[in-house]
Amino acid sequence: MVIAVNDLMQLHRPASTPPTSHPVVMEAVGLSVSYGAFRAVRDVDLAIRRREITALIGPSGCGKSTVLRCFNRMNDLVESARVEGRLTYHGIDVYGPDADAGEVRRRIGMVFQKPNPFPKSIYENVAFGARVNGRRSKAELDELVERSLRGAALWDEVKHRLRASALSLSGGQQQRLCIARAIAIEPEVLLMDEPCSALDPVATAYIEDLMHDIKERYAIVVVTHNMQQAARVSDRTAFFTTEVADHGDRRTGVLVEFGRTADVFSKPADERTERYITGRFG
């Protein structure tokens, strides 16, 4: 057991996070999500900090993706979804009466599990966010597209074919394009829902390097199934698991433990966390 944990910790990058904590950008207090009568996840308390990568890990069905999709109100698209508890962005209620879902999503960007570029040119993919959020001049758009593609470490590969279809890119390039598209709207928070699960190891390494490079400018929340990935890239880790509800046979997700990644992996406070990260459960 000890050996396994040490292996994981060796993968962890040299601590780039100083012991002092960065300011909190988003905070969930007693967050619960239900789909109809089914409660998917309950009573989640989380704090997302600037310049840090927060990893959400846990077995399938533990509600980690559901929690992530609350942060930018993507659950609004599911008619039966109901969110309870409090979720704030700089102290403002994300689900409050004054919060517009579009404005929330402009500030809190998202990258999906499967690369989902629009069937348009590379340029138009990156420019889409700017186009729907108000007009800009051609020169401004050009500059934005280049800056965003550079930010996603894709510029050198595509600069000569910006007008080519985004679908002509490889899977890893498509996912970096989706990251470029997300950072082009200049969000403060970047949500990533298993961004590497559809990619090969080389492309995965590219994305992980990229996450590490850009975290200075964003608060990143990443859902991952991959323990090593969480250990490698994240500063804080939230471990979710499932518990059988009082009635019925469906399982509700709960947050077990949330802390610095080094602590969660080397000296987990909860026995369930320890069993999961050592591979004895899940």
């Binding site: 698209l77 579009g102 999503r105 960007g109 999906f112 989902n116 629009f118 729907v132 598209r181 709207i185």
Partner: peptide, 10 residues
């Protein structure tokens, strides 16, 4: 595709 557009604030 819809999710991608909505997530960009559309």
């Amino acid at each position: 595709l819809r999710q991608g557009a909505v997530a960009l604030g559309a």
